[in-house]
Amino acid sequence: MNIASIFKGFINRNGWGLGSYLLIAVGFWLIILIILPQLSMLDFSFRHHLPPPEMGGPKDTYTFEHYKFLALGAQGADQSYNVVDLGVFVRTLVAAFFVTILDLLLCYPLAYYLGQASGSGYTRILVLFLIIPYWVNEILRAFAFRIIFGDSGVINEMMMTMGLIDNPIDFIRDNIALYSGLGYAYILLMIFPMYNVIESLDRNQIEAARDMGAPWWRIHWRIVIPYAKPGISSGCTMVFMLSAGALAAPQILGGPSSLWFTQIIYQWFNQGGNWPRGAAYAIVLLTVCIVIVLSAMRLFKVKMGDIGK
């Protein structure tokens, strides 16, 4: 089957009006909004940081300069590697990984409960409670977390009143506020894919396993989790990608000494005005995240099509 006949078949199925609308809309979205900007960023990342008059001049050649800088640091620096930026990079990925695991552990029981206790009006109210906080915008939510986790915030006050601690814990410096904030921000993206899959699990399978003597943990291990795998991987992918790429939460909730890799990217673009370097950093982050997700999918034998569930 060649492209022309596929195209013809598509138009025949959907009619001229809808068919061409779908093609144009999807094409615009894919090419103009996703592929072209990313390609131009890729192009940027290989160019020298030049003042505007010199752009397009003889000095405007392709270079690996910015990638080298991320790996090796400024020429003549003390260390042979860019310890600071690479350190932040690794720390960001590790933190995003832990946020993902934290969300997974928090959300699985909830998604299971919602999925299997479905039908009752109670469930719908619970889902509503989960959704409504997302009407509050991200910045406001992050600042609210700052207040909650502050020295004289609700949590410290409560623990001190109860006599659990003598001095307030510095949640901000210890990045606890940051991880909580990030974890909270993406909870829904973790719950809903899992909930959707678990909801479609035939209850009889759980009962059949129970009838054959399986304890609850084995039912989850052998029946529910394998079944929910597409939802779990879909949720984990989204939470990992978005945590690694988050900006507002680390900016507001991060401790003074901790930096998120996105903040470095932001600095190069904005404060440094060095777009090529920012682009190079962003491309590295994107590529590494994709590689991590793909390897994880390989490891857990998840198919690409499952992510869409």
């Binding site: 035939d202 009889n204 399978q205 009962e207 059949a208 396993a209 009838d211 052998r222 029946i223």
Partner: peptide, 9 residues
């Protein structure tokens, strides 16, 4: 128990 829809895994 054998279920109406069999409930094979």
């Amino acid at each position: 128990l054998i279920f109406q829809n069999l409930a094979l895994f």
